[in-house]
Structures are given as structure tokens and as C-alpha cells.
Simulated scan of single mutants.
Amino acid sequence: MNISIKDILGKWQEFTLNNDYGMSVSVLNYGGIITKILVADQSGEVENVVLSYRNYEDYESNPHFLGTIVGRVAGRIKESSFQIDDKVYHLEANNGPNHLHGGPQGFHQIIWEAKPFQTDNEVGLRLTHKSPDGEGGYPGNMEVTVTYTLTNDNQLILDYAATTDQPTPIALTNHSYFNLSGNLVSTVHNHLVTIDSSKFVELDQNLIPTGKVLDVEETPFDFRQGLPLRTGFNDSSKQNSIVGNGYDHYFMFDHSKASVVTMEEPTSGRSMTIQTNQPGMVMYTSNGLDEGVSLAENTSEKYLGVCFETQGSPASLHHDAFPTILLKGGERYEQKTIFTFSAIK
């Protein structure tokens, strides 16, 4: 196992974590961005399984949040405001009137303090950031740590931790777009996904949660026994249509299985499982991905990747039916998500 470091554009560093079995993960200190995840297919061919830009300069704007840490709150906050006790807080709007993924100066566009580490069985990168009171409109001085760990079991472990000196919302996630075909050979139409979820959250026309929780039974959202992602691309139901014919919805985990998500790509034989202590996730199938952008191995197009944004739901700021994302002074936010990669031999 080892770690290599490369200077990027004279202002960032890219840390590449390598295990003993050919898997590697590359991360920028800018935005905590995962730029590459290299894993073997069933023939032993090692290829990239996440979307990444061909030109590093494109990460500065990165309108689709490729590979980024998202925060303080991932997802959309209605009307860019929320209330704690009797006080209303106003955030920066960057998605019409709404606040998306931490706003225009969110965690995806800062340079994190980065410290690599290594033991006998794992290599990793610890990223820290001090977010001052009022940053982006959020209350409280917050100290955040995001740790990426790669093991010899081909596990990528993401640990999120934070403290604050006054009540504030927090819902961190990673926004990597996965494509297990390898080097973007094909779209994710035929990726077979299983999700341990019997409920999902209804969206309105502006992609804001209505507060209503829907049953997946007899809908294109019932992934409990596994479905190809194209199921939602080709369905004309309202919830699939309003997000651009696909998925951009919050699934509430049943937590009845060890892995909340399993994804398999039949041609490459690659599979990925997700374990987490988060209450749910947004699955986004890149319905709004711009076409024609230069990516590392191909040009971008709709349905080229799928995001599994494990997180708490910002809908809890306006609807009582959801687990709270408020962190109080003196409390500690701790969340973990584990991605495990394998291939049929």
C-alpha cells in the first residue's frame, strides 16, 4: 500500500491512495473531490469507475459537483431559508430561489487541509475545514473532518465528523458519479441496482420535497428485489418525468440488510455495495448532465453515471416527518459510508 502526491495547476494537490490489489482512489484537496477510482473487472482489467474531467481546470466551476464533498447541507433547501427556534436564517440561493448543495461557496469549492496516513492494512486522507459562523448564511462555527480510507478489501470508507458551537443544520455527502462499465464504455442503463428501501420522498415541480413519503410498491422506485436503472428512464410516471426522466429522489432506508445498496454491471462483472448509518440517500441518475463536456475517457451525456448521496434529508428543515439534521452545540456529528468493490472472476 502506498500514497502518491501530485501538484495540480500550481495550487492544488491530488493524493492517490493505492492498495495491494490494484485498486486506487485519487482525491483533490480542493473540494475533497474524488477524481478517479480504479478497480478491476472480471478479466482483471483495471479501469476508472467514476466520472472525472479531462481538464483539471473544469473542477473550478464543476456545475454538476463531480466527485465533491457537499455541505454544509447536501440537497435543496426550499426558498433558501430555515428556522431554528424563533430565528429565520437566509442562505445564498443558487438553484432558482432555492439553496443547493451548500450554496455557491459550499464545501465543494474550498481547499481543505489535507493529511495522508498509512497503516499496515489501509491508506487514507484526512481532510479538515473550519467553517466560520455565517459562512453561506449558516449559523455556528463548525469544525468538519472528512476521512477517506482505502483498505486491502477494496473498501473505500468515508467518515464524516463535525462539531458546532451553536445549533445548525448539517448533512454531508459525496457526489461521485459511478459507472461500473469502466472508462465510461457505456451509460448506466443496464446497471442493476438493489436498494433496501420501501419508502421514497415525493418531489414537486421544482424538485423540492413536498413532505409526503410514498410507498415504492408497484412503482419504478421499488428496487428491493433489484431493477435496471433504465426502468425509470423509460417510465412516464410523474415522479420520474419531473426530474428529467430518471431518478433524483430521496430513498429512506429500511436498514433490514447489511448493505443498503448493491449495484452490478453485467458486461464488466463489476459490483459495488454500500453500507452506511445514514437514514437515506438521494439517487441521482445524471438526468441533467450537460452533453459534450470533455471527461477523462469520453464526453458527457445524460445517464452516464449514477450518484448515491447517502445523507440526512434537508426536507426535515420544513417537515416534521423526517429525522432532524440539526446539530446542537456540544454534540458531535458522525456518519459513515462504505463502498465495497468486487468483480466476478
Rank of each mutant, 00 (worst) to 15 (best):
G75D: 13
G75R: 10
G75A: 14
G75S: 15
G75T: 14
R76C: 10
R76T: 14
R76V: 14
R76Y: 11
R76W: 11
I77A: 13
I77T: 14
I77L: 11
I77Q: 12
K78Y: 15
K78L: 10
K78R: 15
E79S: 09
E79R: 09
E79L: 09
S80P: 03
S80H: 04
S81E: 10
S81Y: 06
F82W: 15
F82L: 15
F82C: 12
F82E: 12
Q83N: 12
Q83S: 11
Q83H: 14
Q83W: 15
I84T: 15
I84L: 14
I84N: 14
D85I: 13
D85K: 13
D85N: 13
D86Q: 11
D86F: 15
D86G: 15
D86S: 11
D86A: 15
K87Q: 15
K87A: 15
K87S: 12
K87G: 14
K87W: 14
K87M: 14
V88T: 05
V88Y: 01
V88K: 04
Y89D: 05
Y89V: 05
Y89N: 05
Y89S: 05
H90E: 07
H90T: 09
L91R: 02
L91G: 02
L91W: 02
L91N: 02
L91D: 03
L91K: 02
E92N: 05
E92W: 04
E92L: 05
A93P: 02
A93I: 02
A93W: 02
A93K: 03
N94H: 09
N94G: 10
N94M: 11
N94Q: 09
N95E: 11
N95L: 10
P97I: 04
P97V: 05
P97M: 04
P97C: 03
P97H: 03
P97T: 04
P97Y: 02
N98K: 04
N98T: 04
N98M: 05
H99K: 12
H99Q: 15
L100S: 07
L100M: 08
L100T: 06
L100K: 06
L100H: 06
H101P: 10
H101A: 09
H101M: 09
G102D: 06
G103I: 08
G103E: 06
G103P: 06
P104K: 13
Q105G: 10
Q105M: 13
Q105P: 08
Q105F: 12
Q105E: 11
Q105L: 14
Q105D: 13
G106V: 15
G106S: 11
G106T: 11
G106R: 10
H108W: 07
H108A: 09
H108R: 08
H108E: 09
H108I: 07
H108L: 07
H108Y: 07
Q109I: 12
Q109C: 14
Q109P: 08
I110Q: 05
I110R: 05
I110W: 04
I111A: 01
I111M: 02
I111H: 01
I111F: 01
I111G: 01
I111R: 03
I111D: 01
W112F: 00
W112G: 00
W112K: 00
W112A: 00
W112H: 00
W112R: 00
E113M: 02
E113G: 01
E113A: 02
E113T: 04
A114L: 00
A114Y: 00
A114G: 00
A114H: 00
P116I: 01
P116C: 01
P116T: 01
